[in-house]
């Protein structure tokens, strides 16, 4: 527990509140104190912790992979290059398995998604109180460390993928072809409105399921870590260690699922008709 004077629900709430910067209802700009204040700021507010941590992790990913790419040789690979190549090869194999066609964007996109999500999810494995307590020491009132427990993050990536789905659907099939795919399927043309409704739901459910799956898993995992952190000190490790070990699997699995579904969705966007 970070503070003696907090009740359990306050503790949990504190851990699940983002550091939001925006305009207060009274017109002044600043950091929202509490979830309710953040809600009142409306849409035009930024979760500084989510952005900060995710961009930092993204930069970390780019830094190490770029370093490996710069020094990459066809000779015997060094440690970092070996590791990076392992990841790259894994992603490349996944793409080759599910994506039929040629698009130079898909593999780097998948790599970015995979590594970035793993890094963000892995922040879950940092003990839940470390970084928020440290933040409080330097005057940051709220700090939600795991960006993927913020729906803004997961929806942002899912929307990015959704834009790519729309873009490539239109690019490969044209507006007419894309519309035909939505309208003339699975029932005959007479039932066009019905078809359109069905296909639009299935289209829109793609980014939503992507975002919510990742968000839900990580949010739940984080919640359990927080609950474990409220146990007496002696009992914590007995639960948090097994959960953390299990969570390693979830961290990687969710990243892999997000990546694989992205590849599959984009592959479907490239295919003429199903």
């Amino acid at each position: 527990m970070s503070g003696e004077n907090l009740t359990s629900s306050e503790y949990i709430k504190h851990h699940l509140t983002n550091l939001t910067y925006g305009q207060h209802p009274d017109g002044s700009w600043g950091i929202a104190h509490g979830a309710d204040a953040a809600k009142e700021m409306g849409f035009w507010a930024l979760n500084i912790d989510t952005i900060g941590v995710s961009v930092l992790l993204g930069a970390l990913f780019i830094y190490f992979f770029k370093k490996a790419a710069q020094t990459a040789t066809a000779g015997v690979p060094s440690g970092l290059q070996n590791f990076v190549e392992m990841v790259v090869e894994f992603v490349d194999d996944s793409v080759k398995d599910s994506f039929n066609g040629r698009n130079p964007l898909i593999a780097p996109l998948s790599l970015t998604i995979f590594v970035w999500i793993i890094l963000m999810n892995a922040m879950d494995l940092v003990p839940v109180d470390y970084l928020p307590s440290l933040g409080q020491l330097v005057g940051i009132p709220y700090l939600k460390v795991v960006p993927t427990t913020d729906p803004n993050m997961t929806f942002a990536m899912a929307l990015g993928v959704f834009f790519l789905i729309l873009f490539y659907s239109v690019k490969v099939k044209g507006f007419g072809g894309f519309f035909a795919e939505l309208a003339f399927h699975p029932f005959p043309k007479v039932l066009m409105p019905f078809n359109l409704f069905l296909e639009l739901v299935s289209l829109i459910s793609k980014p939503i399921s992507l975002a919510l799956r990742l968000f839900g898993n990580m949010y739940a995992g984080e919640m359990i870590f927080i609950l474990i952190a409220m146990l007496p000190l002696g009992a914590q490790w007995a639960l948090s260690v097994p959960w953390a070990i299990f969570h390693i699997l979830i961290v990687i699995l969710q990243a892999f699922i997000f990546m694989t579904l992205t590849i599959v969705y984009l592959s479907m966007a490239h295919e003429e008709s199903h």
Binding site: T20, I51, P151, F155
Partner: peptide, 10 residues
């Protein structure tokens, strides 16, 4: 836990 402009930034 609200959707806000973070979405666009991210």
């Amino acid at each position: 836990m609200n959707i806000n402009a973070t979405l666009i930034g991210q």
